[in-house]
Design a binder for these strands. Structure first.
Lengths: 233, 233
DNA sequence: CTGCTTGCGTCAATGGTGTTGTCATAAGCG
DNA sequence: CGCTTATGACAACACCATTGACGCAAGCAG
């Protein structure tokens, strides 16, 4: 089929338990996938491992999703909903609201890095995203921006948040060994460079481990400050 | 080996041409990898395809790189090198220097979206990156930050730049059809939502197309302003 | 209760991936 | 000229996603 593939119908009547007794469903599979990624790291998500965890043949999953990408999108849809669940920006000051907005997305993405690495780059065009954008623009209007500037600054804000979230998520999705190797660079290769050729690195040697962790919190506060300045100016 | 693996020495004396007559080298391989990824997409980067393109056995590449990850880091470092080529921050005010620093990286990543999407979140641990980090920290020292704060704020700055670069690069790496569909969402789905349920989107309807383009320029200026505030405070 | 339809789990196979160990060969030094 | 060794080739291993054929059994029709 070259046409857009029709959704696999969610309503199923016939149910056959798997060899090990588990009843499969779209929800059960997404649950298991998120659990698998959360517990065993980013590279634990493969059709084979998922099948093993569910006690079914890997190919059984294709009865529910067209591809692993399709499965990941389904999982990412749930992520957006969970990130925004219980968020009530109208109850707080705009700056606090924007901060929580950013922190919620960032936290959710970090909790599911492998899924997030794919989700961050995509426009879902679904209900949860609609609601999030509406809330975000509303917060910037309350900060004092006019309509056009609110949109422009919301765009900059959310892209910065998503960019950091994607970066941190992609990093967390790396195999542990590579992640540790990247971290060690700041106390190893970087700290041992000659101060002659790299004077700043030499002078700041003892602070370089700061480069290893996430810088999102610092960047978020900087951005909020800048928005405050821009709104009042 | 649990220790950090020794670098494969760059100086080689013996040279044996491959079956098809090509002389392999680290540079030749990176060249080919960048070309391959640029032409045929991120999924085109595999040792087997790379070997085929170079006219050598896939395993020959392991004489030059420990793994495909190692190769990717080498390619990434070359991007950094090209981005920083001819950059002389000491000749300009710190704010102008940081702006150009950000713009250079962003431009280079946009020029090689597929490699950038794979490499934006990695630490290359190589010469070009060393120099870039040294220059970046130096600019923030000149802004008035102490050593520790300079490192902390450089981290936030560069991660924001890389995050935006990764986002924009991933967007550019999308198939044109999907990219256009995403753009159309802001004049289509988003603009047609009911103002009852999404009041902000309704009010700002005519400005929503602003969401389609890159927000990097706006975010960069915001960040520079915030750094100025933080440095003087 | 019987029997048919069909949803769906299983099996087997295809062709892709990174990586490693072994071997042969040729480059360049002594 | 011959020896050492760098390095390319080959084969094999373990994993991956995806597909098509097969057959079991769930649930409805009669």
């Amino acid at each position: 089929m070259t046409m857009t593939e029709g959704r696999i119908p969610v309503e199923r009547r016939r149910r056959k338990p798997t060899k090990s007794g588990v009843l499969l469903s779209e929800d059960v599979i997404v649950d298991c996938a998120l659990r698998l990624v959360g517990q065993h790291g980013g590279d634990a998500l493969s059709v084979r491992r998922l099948g093993a965890a569910l006690g079914c043949d890997p190919s059984a999953l294709y009865r529910y999703f067209h591809s692993t990408d399709d499965l990941l999108l389904a999982a990412s849809d749930r992520l957006i909903g969970e990130a925004m669940d219980g968020f009530h920006p109208e109850r707080m000051a705009w700056r606090d609201g924007l901060r929580e907005f950013g922190l919620r997305i960032h936290r959710e993405y970090r909790a599911h890095p492998r899924v997030a690495a794919l989700a961050a780059y995509r426009v879902t065009r679904r209900a949860h995203e609609f609601r999030a954008v509406d809330a975000g623009i509303g917060l910037l209007r309350r900060a004092g921006f006019g309509e056009e500037d609110a949109v422009r600054h919301y765009s900059a804000f959310v892209d910065t948040v998503l960019g950091h979230a994607a970066l941190d998520a992609a990093y967390l999705a790396l195999p542990a060994e590579r992640r540790e190797a990247d971290d060690r660079a700041w106390t190893g290769e970087y700290a041992n460079l000659s101060p002659q050729t790299h004077p700043q690195l030499g002078a700041a040697r003892e602070h370089l481990p700061l480069m290893a962790g996430s810088s999102f919190a610092v960047a978020l506060e900087l951005l909020l400050t800048a928005l405050e300045v821009a709104a009042s100016g």
